[in-house]
Amino acid sequence: MNPAFSVIFLTTLIGVGQGLFLALYAAELGSAFELVPPQDSRSFFALGAALALGFLAAGLAASFFHLGRPERAWRAAARWRTSWLSREVIVLPAFMAAVLCYGAAHYLGLPATLMTGAVASVLCLALFVCTGMIYACIKFLQEWATPLTVVNYLLLGCASGFAFATPMAAATGNGLVVPLAAGAVMLSLAAWATRAAALARNRRIKPKSTVQTAIGIKHPRIAQKAQGFMCGSFNTREFFHGRGGQAMSLVKWGFIVLAFPAPVALIAAGTALASVPLLSAAFITQYLGLIAERWYFFAQANHPQNLYYQAIS
């Protein structure tokens, strides 16, 4: 597939927003059970919810650049019974509304923030499932058709959200830096493990479709001689990224380093030194890594339609 930056920014930005909200809610739950010190409603929870909302809105805005007809985007809520994309289109605004309520309740000092947060958390997890299933449900994109896709969206989003919450807690000067940093490190390590598992799985994939099944001729040697046109078409632009193996390998190792060990080291150093710049650098590093990760996720998927577009003439 040819990676679309609109979708890369959509999925990574809403991942940060979702993870940030879950970090906030985890902090509130923790203080309710007296595991972590309680925080100020306005300067921590309301600010955090506003920032999470900002990430989600930025992701939503990015998604519109993917559409040919963005003015009709409202129609995308119609087929929630069958389409994971439609479900995401419903759940994302619902989650944003819940985060808004959660932040507003904290800002205005209203009760029942825990209940609001619980509803928002359910929507948050549902959104991770919807986003992951959009890719995992296409069975012939074999690189994506695995539960690991959903797990990776969940863990990568949560890790980046906790990585954002850590410098935020440090900047507002509260006592959550260590627990949030621990969460960010553990989630990053877990995401590292599952993403590596997905990479290992994809390395061994045997394509179910071959040029033999594509044109239905059972001969071991089939070579395309013409694809019906001399220059490009939608099929050659949308499904081929056109990068060589070296660039792919560079992006792969880039994201493996930037998204996992580098931020973990920076978070550890930043927590030990209580340094906001180091913790912020950890988030920025991880976010850049996640952009590369998402680019690789799309580029690695080998669409069976490519079997029909192997040679120009």
Partner: peptide, 12 residues
């Protein structure tokens, strides 16, 4: 059609 191209992805 909103031009999201998802159907093209879903056509082998």
């Amino acid at each position: 059609c909103i031009g999201c191209k998802y159907c093209a992805w879903a056509c082998p």
